[in-house]
Structure formats: C-alpha cells, structure tokens
Amino acid sequence: MDKFLTLRGIACPLEMENVDTDQLIPARFLSRSRADGYGGFLLHDLRFDAHGRPRGFTLDEPRYAGASVVVARRNFGTGSSREAAVYALWDYGVRCVVAPSFGDIFSGNAVKNGLLTAVVPEPDAEALLAWLRHAGAPELTVDLEGQTIVGGGLPFTFSIDPVRRLRLLNGWDDLDLTLQYTADIAAFREARCKAHRWAFPALPPVERDGNARS
C-alpha cells in the first residue's frame, strides 16, 4: 500500500449528511470487476439520471474536476460494509474525505486502501464547505503527519485514530503484520480446541475419557 504523507489537491464540497454507501456506489454495480475501475460509479445516481445524463451534481462542476479531497457533513459512509464504496472514491482519484464523523466499517475499509478519513468538528466542516463553495481555487493541503488541513489561508486540525494514522503514514499492510503472529495463532487455536471444542463444528465431540468419538 502507498504511504500517505501530504496531499494537495482540488477539494469538492458535498453539502450532505449521511452520505451512505448506497449513494457512494449503488448496489447494481457491485458485481463488476475492479479491474475495469470503479470511479465511474462514484455517487452515480446523484450524478446521472436514468439515461446516464449528468444532473449537474457538485462533483461534476468544472471547478471541482479532478478532486482528490471530498468534504461532507456528519456520518459519511454510513450503511453497508461494501468496500466498493472506498474503491469508487479511490478509483475516481479521491485520497481524503473530511467530515465530522464516519461510519465505522467505512473508515476501517478506507485505511486498508490508503484513503484518509479526516475528522473535523462540525463548525470546521461547515467553514470548509462554505469556503470551497465559493473559492476561486478550491484547493486544500492535507498533512497527515501534522494532522492539519490548510485551505483559503485557514488552518484546521483534524483527528484520526492514532493506529490508523500510523498505518497510513507507513503504508502498512495488515497481512504482513499478521504473518509475524503465525505461531501465536496456532497456539491460540490449539488452546481453543481444548477448552471450547464445541466451537469447532467439524470436530467430533469428546468422550468423558477425553478421546474423540470416531
């Protein structure tokens, strides 16, 4: 996974609460292969009508073309566990979402794909939204090390879970880390088999003398 250090880019304001996963990517696209890219599905039904014609949604305004940051209201990414919501943002080119709060599963999925979810207090989110709406150059600079967002001369600080911050800064992959614990996992499994054999449905129950029934 790529490291996330700083980002400078066009930021698009989404003046909406509860931007749920069904908005981020409608369910009918979830069967598609990632190889074809998910960027075209991002916020699809808010952006396009039934005939695929643009509705003039904010993200498609020329001033926000190529946005790599999205700023929104509370509870961004609420809803389903579909990681495709992150894929759609990522493949579109978004690397950071700024909001007062995020759905838990969404923000977990985000970090695993290198997408930063930056939490700011509601008044700051509103200030950013208002500024981006009218800024001549709607650009933000996001610094993960210093946890700051700078735009229009205004510096904001954001919060992020320290573990997720480290993971993004270092581009760590969970699996590589877990493989260092292979022996611990094997030992845990063996102990659990002994103490809670019932939790393993494929294992035959144990007789009182401790031998497995055939």
Partner: peptide
C-alpha cells in the same frame, strides 16, 4: 460486518485486527 480486505484477511488467517470499541 467487515469489508473485503478484512474478509480476505480472515480467509487467509482466521483472525482479524480490531480496536476495542
């Protein structure tokens, strides 16, 4: 519920990293 990266991690290791809620 978990996302696809976590599903893959569980498939490969039968474990999952989590922060205690």
């Amino acid at each position: 519920g978990i996302g696809a990266s976590e599903v893959a991690h569980v498939l490969m290791t039968q474990t999952l990293w989590q922060k205690k809620p």
